[in-house]
Amino acid sequence: DELVREILGRCTCPDQFPMIKVSEGKYRVGDSSLLIFVRVLRSHVMVRVGGGWDTLEHYLDKHDPCRC
């Protein structure tokens, strides 16, 4: 939770990309009902993408309208 909030807090946009914790390891992202699975691996916040894992920073770079 703290690492996810820290990464989201780096955004300086007036309207921050919403990530709402639904349950342990599950977050709702953006304005959709899309759920992502998150885990911490060796101090990196990882997001389940397709059949693999990606860093939360890279995921936000691709999906946050402010960072695109």
Rank of each mutant, 00 (worst) to 15 (best):
P65T: 03
V40Y: 09
D1N: 05
H44C: 10
R48W: 07
E57G: 05
G25D: 12
L41P: 02
G50T: 09
P14Q: 10
H44S: 14
V49F: 08
M19D: 00
S32I: 03
K21E: 07
V45F: 01
Q16H: 06
R48D: 09
L3V: 08
V29E: 00
L60V: 04
G51A: 13
C68I: 12
P18Q: 13
R67N: 00
R42Y: 10
L41N: 12
K21N: 02
R5N: 15
L35C: 12
T55D: 07
E2R: 13
Y59D: 00
V22G: 01
E6Y: 04
L41H: 15
H63P: 06
D64N: 02
K21V: 03
G25Q: 11
G30W: 00
I20T: 13
F17G: 03
R28S: 08
P18V: 07
Y59H: 00
K62P: 02
E6R: 10
R48S: 13
M46V: 08
V38A: 06
F37S: 15
L56K: 01
D61N: 11
K62I: 11
D1L: 03
V29F: 10
L60D: 05
G25P: 02
S43F: 10
V49G: 09
S43Q: 10
G30P: 06
G51E: 15
D15M: 14
D64E: 04
T12L: 04
R5D: 10
F37K: 15
V49I: 11
P18D: 09
G30I: 02
G9L: 06
H63L: 10
V45L: 08
C13Q: 01
D31M: 10
E57R: 01
F37N: 15
C11A: 05
L35V: 12
G9K: 11
S32Q: 12
M46W: 11
G52L: 13
F37E: 15
Q16T: 11
P14N: 07
L34N: 14
V40H: 08
L60P: 01
L3S: 06
P18N: 10
C66F: 01
D64C: 08
K26R: 13
Y59Q: 05
C66E: 04
G50R: 10
P14G: 06
K21Q: 09
S43G: 15
G9H: 09
M46A: 05
G25R: 08
R5P: 00
L34T: 14
C68H: 14
M19P: 00
V38N: 03
K62V: 14
K26W: 15
Q16N: 04
E57P: 01
V40G: 07
V38P: 08
L41M: 14
C68E: 12
Y27W: 14
D61Q: 11
I7V: 09
F17L: 04
H44E: 15
C13F: 01
T12N: 07
K26G: 05
C11H: 00
G51W: 06
C66H: 02
G30V: 04
S43W: 06
Q16Y: 02
L56H: 00
E2C: 08
S43R: 13
D31I: 10
V40F: 07
G30N: 06
D31H: 13
L35I: 14
E2H: 13
T12K: 10
D31L: 11
V38S: 05
P14I: 08
V38Q: 02
R67T: 00
S43P: 13
D64L: 02
M19H: 07
Y59N: 00
R42I: 01
R39F: 10
G9Q: 14
C13K: 00
